Computed example of a mutant assay.
Amino acid sequence: MIQSVCVFGDSVAKGIAFDSVRKKYILLKDSFVSMVEKNDHIVIRNFSKFGCTVTKGGEVLKKHMSELGRYDYTVLEFGGNDCDFNWAEVSASPESNHVPNTPVSVFEEYYSRMIDEVKACGGKPVLLSLPPIDAKRYFDWISRGLNPENILRWLGDVEFIYRWHEMYNLAVNRLAILHHVPLIDISSAFLKTGNYQNLICEDGIHPNENGHRLIGRTIEKYALINA
């Protein structure tokens, strides 16, 4: 029986969502982490941070390495910020070459290192795949106050954002296979709903409260099957 878990990730794992009424980001009371903790009576330490990339996540992990052996599992959730670009720079110079916060090869290298470090400390890593994004909403979001035409010229088409994000998601899947560690498939859970956009915030990238409920149920189902 699972008694304790620690989580390292970005704003999705932290439980951040955009409140369309108050027009600001908020910390959900019922995030998927808090739901699993409450429903399954598991003690969860959430070390996730808003805006965290796998590089920054590795730094956070190092501060807690001595603790990892105490937990039944160490959940890792990264990629959403790693694949993102400096959209102001793209808007200002659409003809230039722009690189993401973490190039995918670097993303795989650092994530791979993080998985190995968790194992070396006696921890048991579990990876979460990425919830899909709504490319149109996300394009509108990143273009605020910038030049949408220039950004679109650099992208080629709006759906490039979805495809680029999915490339990092596939990298996470490859890492799970390479390192022989469990992967909880959040992506398919969203896509199976049909209109998964209803589970995504106005910004096109953060799961809303219903999205967090789906993630929570998916994790609980995985834990039940593998109990």
Rank of each mutant, 00 (worst) to 15 (best):
N147T: 07
V43Q: 14
Y162S: 11
A17I: 03
L175V: 06
S112V: 02
M35R: 15
H206Q: 09
L146P: 05
G51C: 08
D157W: 06
G145Y: 04
G204P: 01
T102L: 12
R213K: 15
E108M: 13
V126C: 10
S143M: 10
E37F: 00
S105Q: 09
H212L: 07
V33A: 02
F47A: 04
Y73N: 05
W141A: 06
I44M: 13
K29H: 11
K62P: 00
R153H: 07
L191R: 13
N226Y: 06
Y222M: 04
D82Y: 14
N198W: 01
G51N: 05
I151T: 10
E59V: 07
H64N: 14
I184D: 01
E209P: 02
K192I: 01
T102S: 13
A171P: 01
F190T: 00
G216M: 10
S4Y: 01
G58R: 08
L28Q: 14
E108K: 15
H98E: 06
S11W: 12
R22W: 01
V181S: 11
S4K: 05
S187Y: 13
E202I: 03
E117I: 03
G123D: 03
L128A: 01
G216P: 04
I186W: 01
D134C: 15
I115K: 08
G123E: 05
M1V: 06
D10C: 01
I142M: 08
F85H: 11
L183A: 00
R70I: 09
I215C: 03
R144Q: 12
P182L: 06
D140R: 11
G216R: 12
D116F: 02
G15F: 14
G216Y: 14
L130N: 09
R45P: 00
S48G: 04
N208I: 10
A189T: 05
K221R: 14
A189W: 04
P125E: 06
S96K: 12
G194T: 06
V43H: 14
K24Q: 08
L27Y: 08
C121A: 14
K24Y: 01
R137L: 11
G80Q: 13
A17H: 04
W141R: 04
E109Y: 05
M114H: 02
K38Q: 12
A120F: 02
S91D: 04
K24T: 05
P148L: 09
G57F: 12
T218V: 10
P131A: 15
C121I: 00
K62N: 08
K38A: 14
I42A: 05
G145E: 03
S143C: 14
V158K: 10
S143L: 11
N226F: 04
R144C: 03
E67Q: 11
L68Q: 07
F190G: 02
E37Y: 01
V7I: 15
V54T: 15
H179M: 04
L214I: 00
L199P: 07
G15Y: 13
F78T: 02
E67F: 09
S48M: 10
